[in-house]
Design a protein around this nucleic acid. Structure first.
Lengths: 95, 95
DNA sequence: TTGATAGGCAAGTAATGACTTGCCTATAGT
DNA sequence: ACTATAGGCAAGTCATTACTTGCCTATCAA
């Protein structure tokens, strides 16, 4: 569960999540290409690969093998709970 | 805005937020003491102080001076938006 | 005023994390 | 079979960051 927070801490990983939110089921190379063109983020293949490993370990990304391709899909469920951890205990704000 | 994610990445800072969610308006020494007794987290005063600086810079904690005391209060508003960043785009959207 | 308490500042250390480099395997197309 | 493509593994580099150490200022109580 603490892995989710660590996963979200890096701006490149957040861009990867942005990219997967826009278009699901992408391969590593597709993500690399789109990060460069759309989000002006130049990361090497290995760098992105390691980020995806981390995101998968955090449960934010699931993968599916198909031949020599590995598709990555976004799972937003872990995100739903993280914010509520502190919000629930706080009834209301002071003005 | 990216500061919020970085602020949440550290387990000690999350414990500090837990503590402030339970009891607001605490001083640095109070937070230190409670981190040790309740959450079994032994962090030095300076370490906690630096964490609080970071949390304040992220907008998650506000401070108020009163004599020689400095009270820390939790602000959960930045948390509300972070999760929605990816959740909102999921079903369908984007014109 | 003295001493104790609450906190701040800054330089240094140690550890974590992001990224690179080089090589390797497997699948698909020709 | 040969080659290009998609991806994996592992050791190493470099930057960031968490934490320490030592000393300093300010407030309050006796």
């Amino acid at each position: 569960m603490g892995d989710v927070f660590k996963a979200l801490a890096d701006p490149t990983r957040r861009h990867i999540l942005d990219e997967l939110a826009e278009r699901d089921d992408q391969t590593l190379f597709e993500i690399c290409a789109r990060l460069g063109s759309k989000h002006q983020f130049t990361s090497s293949r290995q760098a992105v690969s390691q980020h995806l490993e981390l995101l998968e370990a955090a449960g934010l990304v699931h993968t599916r093998r198909e031949g020599r391709y590995k598709f990555h899909t976004l799972d937003t469920r872990p995100l739903a709970q993280i914010a509520e951890r502190w919000i629930r205990t706080k009834p209301q704000e002071k003005p």
